[in-house]
């Protein structure tokens, strides 16, 4: 096999691995498998859902979510209490993930995998049906054992500059 072909095969394998990871994350979120979802995160991580545009400075501007690893953990613990009323009962959810695309690595994290994807979440609860569309940007890092973990997840919701209903599930 030529070097070019080997590179192409490696890229295809990486894409396949990353897709499977994103699908797994999506299923765990949809099915409220909170601990298994949280276990996909790296020890240091950012979970960011910007508002009023996709390129704001989250240290100076309001976001819908801007969680460090500790706050992700708090969010999960709150869901586990059973008294997170905005998820009691939990929303019925299914999401589609498409257009999965490997992106150029972040220069500050050249060994991590940068991946973009589009999503559509169908949420049903007593309030009614809400559709959430947008784009995920993940930066995935590897554990010493070689497993993928989320170091950074940005959720660019379409229409994040307009009024949004309560979003208390894991998006």
């Amino acid at each position: 096999m030529s070097a070019t072909a080997a590179t192409a095969t490696a890229a295809a394998e990486l894409l396949r691995e990353v897709e499977q990871f994103l699908y797994r994350e999506a299923r765990l979120a949809d099915e409220h498998e909170y601990d298994a979802w949280e276990a996909l995160w790296a020890d240091e991580a950012i979970y960011w859902v910007p508002a009023n545009g996709d390129d704001i400075d989250p240290t100076r501007q309001m976001s819908v979510i801007f969680d460090n690893r500790s706050r992700i953990s708090t969010r999960i613990k709150q869901l586990h209490t059973g008294k997170r009323h905005a998820q009691t009962p939990p929303s019925a959810l299914r999401r589609l993930i498409t257009n999965v695309e490997l992106l150029d690595p972040d220069p500050e994290h050249p060994d991590d995998v940068a991946v973009g994807s589009n999503f559509l979440v169908y949420e049903s609860r007593e309030r009614g049906v809400t559709l959430w569309a947008g784009r995920y940007e993940h930066r995935l890092t590897r554990t010493p054992e070689g497993e993928l973990r989320i170091a950074y997840k940005k959720v660019r919701i379409v229409g994040n500059d307009r009024p949004l209903h309560t979003l208390a599930f894991l998006i």
């Binding site: 508002a51 009023n52 704001i56 100076r60 501007q61 309001m62 819908v64 309030r127 009614g128 307009r162 009024p163 949004l164 209903h165 309560t166």
Partner: peptide, 10 residues
């Protein structure tokens, strides 16, 4: 100057 979230309630 931090911008506003808009949270809609039925």
């Amino acid at each position: 100057s931090a911008g506003w979230l808009q949270h809609e309630a039925k």
